[in-house]
Computed example of a mutant assay.
Amino acid sequence: MLQTLTISEAAVGGIAPPPGYRVEQWTGETPEHLLASVAATRQSIDDAPATRSAVRAPEWTPEVVRAEEAEARAGGVEQRVAVAVEEATGLVVALTDVPLHPGDLTRTHWGTTVVMPAHRGHGLGRMVKAHLLRGLTADRPELEHVGTGTDSANSAMIRVNERLGFVTTREVVVVSRSL
């Protein structure tokens, strides 16, 4: 499902973290104390509801996270990240990011949003997306539209996006086969 958010129509009010969680945000490099946890959370994308596909996410390790960050920096990409941290453990349990490419002035495309399976259903995906979106709209007043793509099997994330103001603009069917 391809969805688009028109910033002027976004529902980005303050979403407080549920009890036991806090939000952290950064631009660029992941803080060292969260690096291993960010890699583990990114790996949870494999557990997100999805239709069968030939596309595979990388195996996320701290080294892969750092390599992706270095590649983004080298390309002039400003990586915005918001995470939910479980207070009791200090671990990242939800994450979302938006890569802002040098030419992204009025439009951009959302990166990844992932919530660890044990923490799904608490509103953490919507919360981290709303926090990141609020920062984007404050820092980038020229931003008009944000696009995102979500597997049609992931109805929970589609609802999160809709609650933030995203509207479905297109449904895409991807077909693959072995040769």
Rank of each mutant, 00 (worst) to 15 (best):
A82W: 10
Q79D: 08
L124K: 07
H122W: 04
L124W: 07
R120W: 00
V115F: 10
A88M: 12
T89H: 08
A67D: 10
L95I: 06
H101D: 13
R66T: 02
G111F: 05
V115C: 08
E69C: 00
A72P: 01
K129P: 12
G111R: 10
P117A: 03
L100E: 05
A118E: 14
V81R: 04
T106Y: 10
A94P: 06
M127C: 14
H122N: 10
V64S: 10
E71T: 14
E69F: 01
H101R: 15
L95D: 05
L124F: 07
R107Q: 13
T108P: 04
A84V: 10
P99V: 04
W110C: 07
T112K: 05
H109I: 09
A72N: 12
V115M: 06
L133W: 06
V81W: 02
V92I: 11
M127T: 14
V77S: 00
A84E: 08
P117V: 03
V83S: 01
E68I: 03
L91I: 05
V92T: 15
A88Y: 14
A82E: 05
M116F: 00
T61M: 11
H122E: 07
M127N: 05
A70C: 02
V64K: 14
H131A: 14
E78N: 00
D97V: 02
P117F: 00
L95C: 03
V92G: 13
T112Q: 14
H109C: 09
T61W: 12
T96I: 02
V114P: 11
E87S: 15
G125C: 01
E78S: 11
L132W: 07
L124H: 06
V81G: 00
R80M: 03
E71Q: 13
M116C: 10
G103A: 15
M127Y: 06
R80P: 00
V83A: 04
H122Q: 13
A72H: 15
L105N: 04
H119W: 04
V77Y: 02
T108L: 12
R134G: 08
V65F: 10
L133S: 06
E69A: 07
V77H: 00
L124Q: 10
G76S: 05
P102S: 08
R73D: 13
A84F: 09
Q79N: 05
W110D: 11
M127V: 11
L91F: 09
H122D: 02
L100Y: 08
V64I: 14
G90Y: 14
H131D: 14
G123W: 01
V81K: 00
A74N: 13
L105T: 14
L105K: 09
R80A: 02
H122A: 10
V81F: 01
G111C: 07
R134V: 03
G90D: 13
R73A: 15
E68A: 09
V85R: 10
K129R: 14
W110G: 09
D97P: 02
V92F: 13
L105G: 05
